[in-house]
């Protein structure tokens, strides 16, 4: 298990190799990439997103979530990296990788992991568009 909250994400192919190397029982690796979208939900042109985190608590919370997913679905391991700071349209902001024996538990885990990341982990996001800015709160 590895969690990183940082201004920079690591190379994705390196992360795939890293999680593959955890166990020779790995039969599936599901990869989620979060990207800054160019249009807001109101149809405004997005200029950038600004992320900030309560870093030590965010990392701890993500580690707890991964531990729970291991128990619930029997996945082998997970890696999550999340950007903080300014991210421009088209840039990657989140990498989440789940390694499992079979694809089914991997798919279930990645969906739950991302949902919980949005709702439970202390990371905040400000959307800056051509018309102004606002803090995005998950509902």
């Amino acid at each position: 298990m590895r969690v990183k909250i940082s201004e920079n994400l690591d190379d994705l192919s390196g992360l795939i190799e890293e999680i593959k190397g955890v166990s020779n029982e790995v039969g599936a690796i599901i990869v989620f990439v979060g990207v800054v979208r160019g249009l807001s939900s109101e149809g405004e042109r997005v200029l950038r997103l600004e992320y900030e985190a309560y870093e030590e608590q965010a990392a701890k919370k993500l580690e707890n979530i991964i531990a729970e997913l291991k128990g619930k679905y029997g996945i082998i391991d997970a890696i999550v990296e999340h950007r903080v700071g300014v991210a421009s349209v088209g840039e990657n902001t989140v990498y989440a990788l789940v390694a499992s024996k079979h694809r089914e538990e991997g798919f279930k885990s990645i969906i739950e992991l991302i949902e919980r990341l949005k709702h439970e982990v202390p990371i905040w996001k400000k959307e800056v568009t051509e018309r102004g800015s606002r803090w995005i709160e998950s509902t």
Binding site: G34, R37, S41, Y51, L117, P122, W135, S138
Partner: peptide, 13 residues
């Protein structure tokens, strides 16, 4: 003491 507004990480809404 950390005062946390509602969170909203990830990629989209």
């Amino acid at each position: 003491v950390a005062i946390l507004p509602p969170v909203g990480g990830g990629d989209d809404e």
